[in-house]
């Protein structure tokens, strides 16, 4: 646990070798409310950090998800497409969205660690 890094746009990323698993934070799923639909990228797509890559929808809102890191999409989580509620139930676990094969292994180091992200979120709520 706790080796996730976070973006200011509320995506998380977990690195294992040169593969980054990505999703949205618990804070983000709570803000969105009941997730009703998830649109995931095509496998094989080459993305740069901050590219719009996926969409997570609740009843009244559609939020674009940006790639937290650059690389190639190598896997997507079919299970959340089938059952979008997984994102609400387990945003950091079974609710992951896609995996990116990193172009630059060091890119994620620039993102926030869990403690910084918690501070960041607290700042938003004030």
């Amino acid at each position: 646990m706790a080796n996730e890094r976070y973006t200011e746009d509320h995506e998380w990323v977990r690195i294992s070798g040169d593969i980054a698993t990505c999703g949205i934070s618990d804070y983000a799923q709570e803000q969105l409310g009941d997730v009703v639909y998830v649109e995931l990228p095509e496998i094989g797509r080459i993305v740069s950090a901050k590219d719009e890559i996926a969409v997570v929808e609740s009843v009244k809102a559609a939020s674009d998800i940006y790639a937290p890191v650059s690389g190639e999409v190598v896997a997507i989580n079919d299970a959340v497409e089938e059952d979008p509620e997984t994102v609400n139930r387990d945003a950091l676990g079974k609710g992951w969205l896609f995996k990116i094969k990193l172009t630059d292994a060091g890119e994620a180091d620039e993102l926030m660690d869990e403690a910084s992200y918690e501070d960041f979120v607290q700042g938003l709520d004030e």
């Binding site: 746009d9 009941d34 997570v56 609740s58 009244k60 809102a61 939020s63 674009d64």
Partner: peptide, 13 residues
Amino acid sequence: MSAMNTQGRPTRP
């Protein structure tokens, strides 16, 4: 992710 609209969410029945 982009700004989230948290308003107007229906109450869970």
